[in-house]
Structures are given as structure tokens and as C-alpha cells.
């Protein structure tokens, strides 16, 4: 078996309640899985639990990233192993510049005793900003500080380009984006996928799905996987049929 994020029979508990029950999917490197479902279906809970949010406990099941079990690891080490969560509404970090945060995160990814090459870091940051058609002054802005919804998403994409995660968990990356920004996001995600990044994508909208053509569609409802399959599932979703599906 090649590299993959293997989520097997996972149950998630938050605030004493079961949010997700017996969820499984095998996300190979370079694949895109789309996770769909109504509000409250447990999509965000699943993503938060996967990256180790202290409020979301995985009580049953296993999560294995490229052969290594993630569950014993704290959130920061899961990040080091290549998991990246793009938040639905990213929090603001007043006064902490994007460059400062990324530099700290990059330094921590180096082997012990090595120091980040600051000039190379700056070049890489500027190249990533150029790729996202963002002004270079973004480097010195506070993380998500005073950003519009769309700007926050771009900012998250910048972090993805800089930290090069192996598996992306995207929580409504496409919400609040205009047509042009959506095209850009889809384009960059397409490139990352070609480079071998696995993507688990939560969305409520069709356009990004059409642009990305996921390998697999997963339907979640009431915390359970109710339907999965190829793009044909999307048509069922649009017709509202999946609502009538029962596990």
C-alpha cells in the first residue's frame, strides 16, 4: 500500500455527546475526498478530532498517517506529521505577523540544531505570496487580523504553501470566495494534489467540487456515513435524495 491517511471506524465525542459514529475512509496521497452533509452532521467535529483538538475526543477507531498512528500524538506533533486543518472561520492573532508565525513553525520542522535560513525563508514566502497574487506586505500583517472572509481563506492557503502538509483537511475553504478567488483556490489545490497532497474537503457548494473532481464523495448525516461513491453521488445530493437514505 502506498502513502495514505487511513481513518478507520472512528467515533468522536465532544461535550459528552457523540458527534461522529463509526466513520471510515482511506485517503491515498494525491486523492481528493469530499465530505458533504447538512449543518450539524459532524463534519467539522471529525476534522477537529483528527487534528487533536482537546475538546474532541476520538473514543473508538484508529487514524494512521503514512503508517504511523496519530492518536497518541498531541496536536502540534500531528501537525508535524503532515496534517493541516484550514479552519472554517480562522481566529485572529492580533500583532502576530504571518511571517513571524510561519518562521516559528518552519524552524520547528527543522532537525534539532539546525537554524532556519532567514533569507531563503523570505524568498520562499515572497514566492508563495506571488503565487496567490497577494501583496508582499501581507507578510507583516497580523495573522487574519482585520481580514475579510475571503482574505482569511487566502491567508490559510498561504500557510499551506509554506508548511507543505501531506494531508489537507479543508473546512469550507470555498465559503465567502468570489468567482475569481474560487478559481485560484481550485487551481492551487489541483497543483498540490498533483504534487501528492491528499485532500479531505468539507463543502456545501458544488462549484469547487466540479473544479476539483474528487475521487470520492462521502455523505455524512447525524454523525454517520450514509452514502459514499463517485461523482454520481453528487447528483443524488443535489436532488436531495440522500436525505431519505437511511443507514
Amino acid at each position: 500500500m502506498g502513502n495514505a491517511l487511513a481513518i478507520d471506524a472512528v467515533s468522536v465525542v465532544q461535550g459528552g455527546q457523540r458527534r461522529v459514529e463509526n466513520f471510515s475512509t482511506l485517503l491515498p496521497a494525491g486523492h481528493v475526498h469530499a465530505l458533504l452533509g447538512p449543518n450539524g452532521a459532524g463534519k467539522s467535529s471529525l476534522l477537529r478530532a483528527l487534528v487533536g483538538h482537546p475538546d474532541y475526543a476520538i473514543e473508538e477507531g484508529t487514524v494512521v498517517c503514512d503508517g504511523e498512528s496519530l492518536l497518541p500524538l498531541p496536536a502540534e506533533l500531528r501537525s508535524m506529521r503532515g496534517l493541516f486543518l484550514a479552519f472554517q472561520s480562522p481566529v485572529e492573532l492580533p500583532g502576530v505577523s504571518i511571517a513571524q508565525m510561519l518562521r516559528a513553525a518552519k524552524q520547528l520542522r527543522l532537525p534539532k540544531g539546525e537554524t532556519l535560513d532567514v533569507l531563503a525563508f523570505q524568498d520562499e514566502l515572497f514566492a508563495a505570496l506571488d503565487r496567490l497574487a497577494m501583496e508582499r506586505c501581507w507578510a507583516n500583517r497580523g495573522v487574519h487580523e482585520g481580514c475579510s472572509g475571503g482574505e482569511k481563506k487566502r491567508c490559510e492557503l498561504l500557510q499551506i504553501l509554506m508548511l507543505k502538509p501531506r494531508y489537507l483537511l479543508l473546512d469550507e475553504m470555498d465559503s465567502g470566495l468570489d468567482r475569481e478567488a474560487l478559481q485560484l483556490v481550485a487551481h492551487v489545490l489541483g497543483e498540490l494534489r498533483m504534487e501528492g497532497t491528499g485532500i479531505l474537503l468539507v463543502t456545501h457548494q458544488r462549484p469547487l467540487l466540479d473544479l476539483l473532481a474528487p475521487n470520492k464523495i462521502l455523505m455524512l448525516r447525524g454523525g454517520r456515513l450514509v452514502l459514499s461513491g463517485g461523482v454520481e453521488v453528487l447528483d443524488a445530493w443535489e436532488a436531495g435524495e440522500w436525505c431519505r437514505q437511511r443507514p
Binding site: V51, G52, H53, P54, P74, A75, E76, S79, M80, F84, L85, F87, P90, V91, L93, P94, G95, V96, Q100, M101, A104, A105, L108, R109, G142, Q159, L163
Partner: peptide
């Protein structure tokens, strides 16, 4: 949690936020 998800452990995350 946001900073930890980016790989920065809690004590360093606090340092960054205080600096901010």
C-alpha cells in the same frame, strides 16, 4: 489551538501571542 495546529507548542504559542 490554532497555533498548535500549525505545529507550535503551547508555551511558544503563548510567547508569540504575548509578543503580538
Amino acid at each position: 489551538f490554532f497555533l498548535r495546529q500549525r505545529g507550535i507548542p503551547e508555551n511558544q504559542a503563548i510567547g508569540l501571542l504575548v509578543n503580538g
